[in-house]
Design a protein around this nucleic acid. Structure first.
Lengths: 239, 239
DNA sequence: ACGCTTTTGTGAACGGATGCACAAAGTCAC
DNA sequence: GTGACTTTGTGCATCCGTTCACAAAAGCGT
């Protein structure tokens, strides 16, 4: 309806994915006492091109001043609001193995906007144990957490074998946003969002590029080696 | 040069990012004794559309049989090879805090293709301690690791404040592939690949979508009440 | 041998994201 | 008030990735 540029029905996913980085950069600037920033400077701090930054920001409204730049606090607030960080989202972590344990203590949650309200595990042996000041509870409290605490986000840190089962329990309890650390594909209804964080996938992508670099170097040396001169350049590369 | 379809100069990044998932799906099928699979089945197991899967696979060559499908073992091998997993990549983890500790013990590395050869930390208090069977060493051994172990991949699990410093040390030692868990932008030369894994970014993206869902529900209920009042509500801050 | 069925591999259309270049809109100096 | 200067916001062209739809290729039954 409105011609308001913040007709936020359609902020591109690619833009949304970058907003947290912009917010982080702005927070850093604010801590250093900087109150105003140009798109060029902010883009550089966030690791993108200034044109991309400006286009991204234009999707949330017109918060800059031509000839001057952006007011750091104000822009940070606008991005926070757009991301829904002006409220605290209750989070539950399921699976208190190595990873879940680390996540419970990880400062990432300490960021304004999120609050760990529960640690859950299926293993009766861990129940009652206290981790990072929170008592580990059984999965059966999920319904209660959603109803009484407004639990909205579930973090799955279980082995892959139990991830789908845990996911189903979260969905059944009414959780519609899931962060999955288990290396597997989760099947969920359309109205549930799943984001996946996968260490071994990332390593494999790095390995692909690393291999390409190694092959390129080898190829370059090989080409030289084909020339009848300079045989001593044949060094072992990569491997 | 060659008209070989596996002219791998250009496998799209988007495709490379999905290959690990295909590989995982294939491994799962193989474990269940399945020897042949159609693009439809494999795509379903990997959570993508069959057309996308087929196009992705077509970038590495023509390994399917029309009217039949793909031979599981063979395709798994081809993807492994393309990803560079037929060799073991030496990995070092830097930063033995909560996260680094969990990563050292995490089974993600146990996947064929990677081998943790060192755990490093700048804190002298942790040196000599043994984690997951590996002794924590100081950063100064980096050069040695690259020269003698062929260290190729560095995993940064330090706080954001020291991440760039650690990154610079890795690059100086010759490491060209970095997986960064610290919530910050790393500046590196062009020939170095950095991939970032960031818990709080992922949570914030989820929060955005969660908020949108909440607003949509609210809007559906109270559309009449909310609509006329909205303009000028957000223009509070001057400068 | 031959047509019927299945499934791959891919050309072509489409849509979204990126980068470029510049007009519009503001500040600042005087 | 005016003109020079700075920086935003955005139309446009381009590129990359996804989806569609189908011809080509293989197996199978007769």
């Amino acid at each position: 309806m409105s011609a308001d540029p913040s007709a936020r029905r359609g902020i591109p996913d690619a833009t949304v994915a970058r907003l947290p980085e912009y917010l982080r950069a702005l927070t850093g600037l604010a801590e250093r006492g900087i109150t105003s920033v140009s798109s060029e400077e902010l883009a550089s701090a966030a690791g993108v091109r200034s044109a991309k930054l400006r286009k991204d920001l234009s999707h949330l409204g017109s918060y800059g001043v031509r000839g001057v730049g952006y007011e750091v606090d104000h822009l940070a607030y606008q991005i926070s609001r757009e991301l829904g960080l002006t409220q605290d989202w209750p989070v539950a972590i399921i699976g208190m193995g190595n990873l879940g344990h680390a996540l419970a203590a990880y400062s990432g949650f300490a960021t304004r906007g999120f609050r760990v309200v529960a640690l859950l595990d299926q293993d009766a042996g861990l129940l009652g144990q206290e981790i990072a000041g929170i008592t580990v509870q059984p999965m059966t409290v999920l319904d209660e957490l959603v109803a009484e605490q407004g639990l909205a986000i579930g973090v799955i840190a279980t082995p892959a074998a139990s991830a789908q089962e845990v996911c189903d329990a979260l969905v059944a309890a009414g959780v519609r946003s899931i962060l999955n650390f288990a290396p597997c594909v989760l099947v969920v209804p359309d109205d549930v969002d799943v984001r996946k964080v996968d260490l071994s996938t990332e390593l494999q992508i790095l390995a692909f590029h690393e291999q390409r670099k190694a092959l390129a170097a080898e190829g370059a040396l090989g080409a030289v080696a084909l020339e009848p001169v300079k045989p001593e350049l044949n060094r072992v590369v990569g491997r």
